[in-house]
Write a protein that binds this DNA or RNA. Structure first.
Length: 263
DNA sequence: CTAGATGTTAAGGT
DNA sequence: CACCTTAACATCTA
């Protein structure tokens, strides 16, 4: 479920496993996922070089290749990384595999292939060209308020809009709204300063706690909404049934009693 | 067999 | 123009 916390965990995983090793071979097995780069160019850019550092912005992960260029990974709905030693092969749904000189492999796995693989010269230029908003964890309270200012849609749609703030998806937007007691159907423009302040605080708290929990459901705080997504679940705060609705085009869980803040 | 699933984007409607 | 919903992408699972 790659939203900001998941991608941050992938970043740390890659940092801990795959930096500073010579790339001996590259296998591109999903040409359709390549964006703005040919299979041949990607292989040439990686082969014989090393991964040197990583950057994350929202749901995008960038990996610098010595001496120049950055590999860009977007994880779509089902993307993930796997670092492993077994020679025998290819984990199913591997779309890009790097073979390191030490015998290990780094695989980018993506069942549904909604993710993307690219090569960029300049990360900041890429972010600007995509009109991506600031990373959700980089915003202070004033920046958060400024980012949301002027958006007339519903708060759920605004928070999920990557051009406004980068990193929140369906799951964590629900979690942030739940933490701040805000009705997901509320209009963004009518939220008062106190509510915006609490939404900002909730965004940081939720994302940081999710990263700390390593995005493993079992380790999430019991007070979170996430473990309770599903039919017939109850609000972990008030014990009443959660409501499931379609808001901003996505399945939304919220507590009608505990998330009253609106206009 | 069908419906729905974490993301993004284009297209069409109000 | 601003906003909303739907469909599409590819595949798996309940």
């Amino acid at each position: 479920m790659p939203e900001l916390p998941d991608v941050e965990v992938f970043k740390r995983y890659l940092d801990a496993t795959s930096l500073h090793q010579r790339i001996r071979g590259v296998d591109v097995s999903a040409r359709r996922m390549l964006q703005g780069v040919s299979s041949r160019e990607l292989v040439a850019a990686l082969t014989g070089h090393e991964l040197a550092e990583t950057r994350r912005h929202g749901k995008h992960l960038f990996v610098r290749i010595t001496r120049d260029g950055w590999l860009r990974l977007h994880f779509g709905m089902t993307g993930a990384l796997a670092y492993y030693k077994r020679e025998d092969a290819t984990l199913s749904h591997t779309r890009l595999r790097l073979d390191f000189a030490n015998g290990y492999h780094l695989a980018f796995i993506d069942v549904r292939m909604f993710g993307a693989i690219g090569l960029v010269d300049d990360v900041d230029a890429f972010l600007a060209s995509q009109h991506l908003g600031p990373d959700a964890l980089d915003l202070d309270e004033a920046g958060f308020r400024d980012a949301l200012a002027g958006h007339r849609g519903g708060i759920k749609a605004t928070l999920m809009n990557q051009h406004v703030i980068a990193g929140l998806g369906n799951i964590y937007t629900d979690e942030v709204l739940f933490a701040a007691h805000v009705d997901p159907r509320a209009a963004t423009e009518c939220l008062d300063d106190a509510t915006l302040r609490d939404l900002h605080r909730a965004t940081h708290d939720v994302l940081e706690r999710a990263i700390d929990a390593h995005v493993e459901l079992i380790r999430f705080p019991r007070s979170f909404l996430l473990p309770h997504r599903g039919a017939d679940e109850i609000c972990p705060r008030c014990g009443r049934p959660l409501r499931r609705a379609r808001i901003a085009g996505r399945t939304t869980y919220y507590c009608p009693r505990d998330q009253p803040r609106s206009c």
